[in-house]
Design a protein around this nucleic acid. Structure first.
Length: 805
RNA sequence: GCCGAAGUGGCGGAACUGGCAGACGCGCUGGACUCAAAAUCCAGUGGCCUUCGGGCCGUGUGGGUUCGAUUCCCACCUUCGGCACCA
C-alpha cells in the first residue's frame, strides 16, 4: 500500500476534472422546466489580495452543497467571478506604484490558481470580472435604463465625504461617522452627485421579504432597521405673523395636546426668513453658523442646546400659541426638519425643556395609574389613555391616535404619513478605478445619456490616478471632450465613476449568460436559473450588497428584464474566522494563507478542517492542533479503505454504513449542517479500521468514500478508483436501505423519577405493559424503588420507561 | 436605550420534534511497538465522594411548567452583532 500523497493525487484529479469539464453546466434548451436545476452561489471575491482562510471556508460551503446536489440529480450552476473595481484595489495599487488594472489582474490570476488548487467544482466557462469592458458595458447599460426610469438622478445634496479616500460615500458606507474602508471621520459637503432612487422601493424592500424562502432573521432585522419605516402623521403648524404653515412629522399624534414648544433644525430653509427683523436675529444666525462648524459626532455628544427665535406657532388641535426654537438636536435629514416638542413624552424634548425651563405637560398616562407628577417624563407603555386632551380625553391611546389624525385630515391640517430612515443611494465616486458613468454634459442640452450603441464608455488611461478630490478621469482631456450625442455641440463626459456596489448588484444574472454581447443576459436563461437557490456570504454584507442587489432585481423586474422579484431565495451567512482570539485581519497580522497548509497537507485536509471546526454559520477559531486531527483522519481513511476486505452487504458494519448515509444525507440536505457529517463518517471509518475483514467492510469503505466526496473530493476519487470504480463525482448520492436501518432490539432506558437507573436490551415488539414489567424486574431499579408504591409509569415507545414513585 | 444571536468538560463542539448530557475531534494520562523518537495501535479522561457495588452534583444565575428540561416559560447576568438625537 502506498502512503497517502495528497499532492500527487490532487493534481491528478484536478487535471481530470478540467479535461472532462466535469463541473460545467449547459444552459437549458428553450422551454426547459426548472425543477431539476439549482443555482448555488457564493459572493464573488474582491481581488485586492489573495484568498485567506475565511474566503476558503465560505467557498467550501458552496462546494459541498454543489457536489451534493449534483449527485442528487440536479443540474447545478456554480459560477465564479471577481468584483474587480474599487477602492482597496486602487489604494493597494497606489501603494505599490502600479496601475490598478495590473495589480487587479495579477490578484485575479493568483485567486484563480488558489481556487483550482483547492479543487472547487466551478463552471470556469462562466467566469466574469466586473472591470472588463464586456461586463461593465452592461453595468453602464443598466445605469441608462435606471436613468430613463427616473431612478438615476443627479442632485446637489449634503453628502458624506471621506477626506482620506478623497471621495464621497454612500450612507451605508459610513459606520459610526467614519469611513467604512479606512476609518477616517467623514465630513459633510454639499455636492452635486448621482443617486439611485432606492427610497422609491423602500416599501417593497420591506414587504417583499415575504417572497424569500429562507433568510437569517438577523439579516432581515438589520435590513428592516436600515430602511426604518415609521408610521405617523404629518401635521401643519401655523406661524401667524408670517402667514405660513410648517409641516412636522410625528409618530405620536396622540400626544399633540402635550406639545409645549416647537423646534426647527438649524439648516431649515425657513430659519432666516423667520428671524428676519426680530431682536433674536443675530443670535439665531450665530447659532446656525456655529452648528455648521460642528461635526456630527460633536453635535450628538454635547448637551442639547438651542435658541429662541422670537416667533410663535399655533397648535392645530387647541389653538394654543407656543414658542419656536432652533436647536441642533433636530436633524434636517429626517422627517421635515421641524418637530413639535412634547417634553412629557419624548426624552430629548424633556431634556431640552428642563434646561430652558419650558413647560412639561403629560397628556398620555397609564390607565388607572398613579397621579402624574408635575414635569415628569412618561415613557410609552401599553394600556395608556389620554388626559387633558379636549374632546379626546379619556380615549385609549391607539384609538385617540387614529381619531386625532382623522380630525386633522378633515380640517385639512394633517394626514397619515410614512417616513423612512433609508436615503437614496449615492453612487458617484471621485476615483479612477471604477465603471465610468455614461453621461455627457452639454451646454445647451444639459445632462445627456450616452447612446446605447456607443457603450461601453471605456475607462481611459490616465497618467495620474491618485485621488485628489475630483475624479482623475477629469485629467484625460482627449477622452473628456466629446460631441453632445443630442445636438452635436461641445460636450464633456461625466468624470465620476460608479460605486463598486453597482457592479456587484447584478453579476449573479450575468453568470447565466456571460458571453452575451447583445444584451446583459437573455431573459429566458435568467428566468430559468434564478432566483439563486442558495446564496452564501459573509454577514458584513447584510445591508450593503444584499439590499442593493434586491433593489436592482426589483427595478429589472419592473422594466421587464427579468421575471423574478427577489434575487436570492435562500441566504446563508457564514461566521467569521478567528485566530488567537481575534478576528482574522491583515492589520492584526493573524491572517493565515491557505497556501502553506495546502502545500504541506493537501487541499482536502484544509477543506475538511474548515468545515469540521464548527457550525459554518458561527464564528470559529483556527487551531493548528485541530487541523492535525483531520490530517490524521485522512491518513486513517486512506489505510482503512484499502485494507477493507470483508465482502457482503449485511452485518453490523453494513448497518453502520446505512445509518451513516441517513445521517449525512439529512444533515447536508435538510439541516444544512456541515460539521456533523464529518463526525459521522469518522465514526464509520473508526469501526471499519477496527476490523477491516468483517463482513460488509468493503461496502462500509465504499460508503465512507462516497459520503466524504463533497468534502474531500480528491482523496475520495482516488480511493474510489482503487476500489475498482470510476467517476465518483457523477455517481448518484447513496440511499440508506430502510430494511437495514430497522432494528429488532433496542436499548431500553429505565428511569426512576426521571433519573436513569438501568439500561436493558428489549425487543421492539414488546408491549408497553411488558416493558414496564421488565423495568420493574431490574435489580438496580428495585434498589431505587425501595418497596415504594409505583404511582405512574411513563412509556416512550422504543426509548424508555420512567417509573414514578 | 431599542432589536437580534449566543452562553454545555482543559479546548473546538454534539445532543434535530421535551426523553440516556458531553457524539466526533483536540489536549492530557497510562500502556503496546521502538535502542530511542516520530508515526500507529490499545485503554482511560465532566466534578466530588466511594466499602469499587455504586452514590451525589452538573449545560451562565434564580425561579416555574412537566413523570422527565441543554431543549419550553418568567426574571436576571455576561458576551457578541446591528441600529440609535429618526421626532
Amino acid at each position: 500500500m502506498e502512503t497517502y500523497d495528497p499532492k500527487t493525487i490532487e493534481a491528478k484529479w484536478q487535471r481530470v476534472w478540467a479535461d472532462e469539464r466535469a463541473f460545467n453546466v449547459p444552459n437549458p434548451e428553450p422551454g426547459a422546466e426548472p425543477e431539476q436545476k439549482t443555482y448555488v452561489l457564493e459572493m464573488l471575491p474582491y481581488p485586492s489580495g489573495e484568498l485567506h482562510m475565511g474566503h476558503v471556508r465560505n467557498y467550501m460551503l458552496g462546494d459541498v452543497i454543489a457536489h451534493f446536489r449534483r449527485r442528487m440529480g440536479y443540474q447545478v450552476l456554480r459560477p465564479m467571478g471577481y468584483d474587480a473595481f474599487g477602492l482597496p484595489a486602487e489604494n493597494a495599487a497606489i501603494q505599490e506604484g502600479r496601475h490598478p488594472r495590473e495589480l487587479t489582474e495579477r490578484n485575479i490570476a493568483a485567486i484563480r490558481a488558489q481556487m483550482q488548487r483547492l479543487g472547487w467544482a466551478i463552471d470556469w466557462d462562466r467566469e466574469v470580472s466586473t472591470h472588463e469592458p464586456e461586463y461593465y458595458r452592461w453595468t453602464q447599460w443598466l445605469f441608462l435604463k435606471f436613468f430613463e426610469q427616473g431612478l438615476a438622478y443627479r442632485k446637489e445634496a449634503p453628502v458624506k465625504w471621506c477626506p482620506f479616500d478623497q471621495t464621497v460615500l454612500a450612507n451605508e458606507q459610513v459606520i459610526d461617522g467614519r469611513c467604512e474602508r479606512c476609518g477616517t471621520e467623514v465630513e459633510a459637503k454639499i455636492l452635486e452627485q448621482w443617486f439611485f432612487r432606492i427610497t422609491a422601493y423602500a416599501d417593497r424592500l420591506l414587504d417583499e421579504m415575504e417572497l424569500l424562502e429562507d433568510w437569517p432573521e438577523r439579516v432581515l432585522t438589520m435590513q428592516r432597521n436600515w430602511i426604518g419605516r415609521s408610521e405617523g402623521a404629518d401635521v401643519l403648524f401655523r406661524l401667524e405673523e408670517l402667514d405660513l404653515d410648517i409641516e412636522v412629522f410625528t409618530t405620536r399624534p396622540d400626544t399633540l395636546f402635550g406639545a409645549t414648544f416647537f423646534v426647527l433644525a438649524p439648516e431649515h430653509p425657513l430659519v432666516p426668513k423667520l428671524v428676519a427683523g426680530t431682536p433674536q436675529e443675530a443670535e439665531v444666525l450665530e447659532y446656525v453658523r456655529h452648528t455648521a462648524a460642528r461635526s456630527a459626532v460633536e453635535r450628538e455628544e454635547k448637551e442639547k442646546d438651542g435658541v429662541f427665535t422670537g416667533r410663535y406657532a399655533v397648535n392645530p388641535v387647541n389653538g394654543e400659541r407656543f414658542p419656536v426654537w432652533v436647536a441642533d438636536y433636530v436633524l434636517m435629514e429626517y422627517g421635515t426638519g421641524a418637530i413639535m416638542a412634547v417634553p412629557a413624552h419624548d426624552e430629548r424634548d424633556h431634556a431640552f425643556a428642563q434646561r430652558y425651563g419650558l413647560p412639561i405637560r403629560p397628556v398620555v398616562v397609564p390607565e388607572g395609574g398613579e397621579p402624574v407628577e408635575e414635569g415628569a417624563f412618561l415613557a410609552h407603555t401599553e394600556n395608556e389613555w389620554l388626559v387633558d386632551s379636549g374632546e379626546f380625553s379619556g380615549m385609549a391611546a391607539p384609538e385617540a391616535q387614529q381619531a386625532i389624525v382623522d380630525w386633522l385630515a378633515e380640517q385639512g391640517l394633517g394626514r397619515p404619513a410614512l417616513r423612512y430612515r433609508l436615503r437614496d443611494w449615492l453612487l458617484s465616486r471621485q476615483r479612477y478605478w471604477g465603471c465610468p458613468i455614461p453621461i455627457v454634459y452639454c451646454g445647451s442640452c444639459g445632462i445627456v445619456p450616452v447612446p446605447e450603441s456607443d457603450l461601453p464608455v471605456l475607462l481611459p488611461e490616465v497618467e495620474e490616478y491618485l485621488p485628489k478630490g475630483r475624479s482623475p478621469l477629469a485629467t484625460a482631456e482627449d477622452w473628456l471632450r466629446v460631441p453632445c450625442p443630442s445636438c452635436g455641440g461641445e460636450g464633456r463626459r461625466e468624470t465620476d465613476t460608479m460605486d463598486t456596489f453597482v457592479d456587484s448588484s447584478w453579476y449573479y444574472i450575468r453568470y447565466c449568460d456571460p458571453h452575451n454581447d447583445r444584451a446583459p443576459f437573455d431573459r429566458r436563461i435568467a428566468d430559468y436559473w434564478l432566483p439563486v437557490n442558495q446564496y452564501i456570504g459573509g454577514i458584513e454584507h447584510a445591508i450593503l450588497h444584499l439590499l442593493y442587489a434586491r433593489f436592482f432585481t426589483k427595478v429589472m423586474n419592473d422594466i421587464g428584464l427579468v421575471g423574478f422579484r427577489e434575487p436570492f431565495a435562500r441566504l446563508f451567512t457564514q461566521g467569521m474566522l478567528y485566530r488567537h482570539g481575534a478576528k482574522m485581519s491583515k492589520s492584526k497580522g493573524n491572517v493565515i494563507s491557505p497556501d502553506d497548509y495546502i502545500e504541506r497537507h493537501g487541499a482536502d485536509a484544509v477543506r475538511l478542517y474548515l468545515l469540521f471546526m464548527g457550525p459554518v454559520d458561527q464564528d470559529a477559531e483556527w487551531q493548528d492542533k485541530g487541523f492535525e486531527g483531520v490530517v490524521r483522519f485522512l491518513n486513517k481513511l486512506w489505510r482503512a479503505v484499502q485494507a477493507a476486505s470483508g465482502e457482503g452487504t449485511e452485518g453490523p458494519l453494513a448497518r453502520k454504513a446505512h445509518e451513516t448515509i441517513a445521517r449525512v444525507t439529512d444533515d447536508v440536505g435538510r439541516r444544512f449542517v456541515l460539521n456533523t457529517p464529518i463526525a459521522a463518517v469518522m465514526e464509520l471509518v473508526n469501526e471499519l479500521a477496527r476490523d477491516p475483514e468483517a463482513p460488509g467492510a468493503r461496502f462500509a469503505a465504499e460508503t465512507a468514500v462516497s459520503l466524504i466526496q463533497p468534502y474531500a473530493p480528491h482523496v475520495a476519487e482516488e480511493l474510489w478508483s482503487l476500489l475498482g470504480h470510476e467517476r465518483l463525482w457523477e455517481q448518484p448520492w447513496p440511499v440508506a436501505d430502510e430494511a437495514q436501518l430497522w432494528r429488532e432490539t433496542f436499548e431500553l432506558v429505565i428511569q426512576v423519577n426521571g433519573k436513569v437507573r438501568d439500561r436493558v436490551e428489549a425487543s421492539v415488539e414488546e408491549s408497553e405493559e411488558q416493558l414496564v414489567e421488565r423495568a420493574k424486574a431490574s435489580p438496580r431499579v428495585q434498589a431505587h424503588l425501595d418497596g415504594k408504591e409505583i404511582r405512574q409509569a411513563i412509556v416512550v415507545p422504543r426509548k424508555l420507561v420512567n417509573l414514578v414513585v
